[in-house]
């Protein structure tokens, strides 16, 4: 369940960013997660729900951009989509391939909103 650690890391990255941005909140976060990043999305979802309450991401809308995995064949130079780390090259059947995409684990962007000033309370 390393997904919990990953969510903690996401929270830390956001805290760093928001440190110097008083009066702002994160309305949306976009993550890029490759299909071969080693992240189980169900576990990630569970970890997110467990870890974010009480943090600056508690009310943030989360978007996940899935990145399809691709490998490059070192023998015939073709680039192809893979579902597993060990998928062979469809052109020549070679296993000697290099994964070029699909292992991403990134915070792509944050969309910030401005915290509305609290209405002043007047004593009656």
């Amino acid at each position: 369940m390393h997904e919990f650690s990953l969510v903690r890391n996401v929270i830390e990255i956001c805290e760093e960013q928001m440190h110097s941005r008083e009066g702002k909140y994160i309305s949306q976060i976009e993550l890029e997660i490759g299909t071969l990043s080693g992240v189980e999305m169900d576990a990630f979802e569970f970890a997110w729900k467990t870890a974010v309450p009480g943090t600056l991401l508690a009310h943030t809308q989360r978007k996940v951009l899935k990145i399809e995995a691709k490998a490059h064949c070192k023998k015939c130079n073709s680039t192809f989509v893979i579902n597993e780390v060990f998928d062979p090259c469809p052109q020549c059947g070679e296993y000697f391939t290099e994964i070029v995409e699909g292992q991403e684990l990134r915070v792509k962007n944050l969309i910030l909103g401005t915290i509305a000033p609290k209405p002043s309370i007047t004593n009656t």
């Binding site: 990953l6 890391n9 996401v10 990255i13 960013q17 990134r106 792509k108 962007n109 909103g113």
Partner: peptide
């Protein structure tokens, strides 16, 4: 709204 383009690896730390 303000957008921060981070492209930061979650494992960077």
């Amino acid at each position: 709204t303000e957008v921060i383009e981070l492209e930061k690896n979650i494992l960077s730390r």
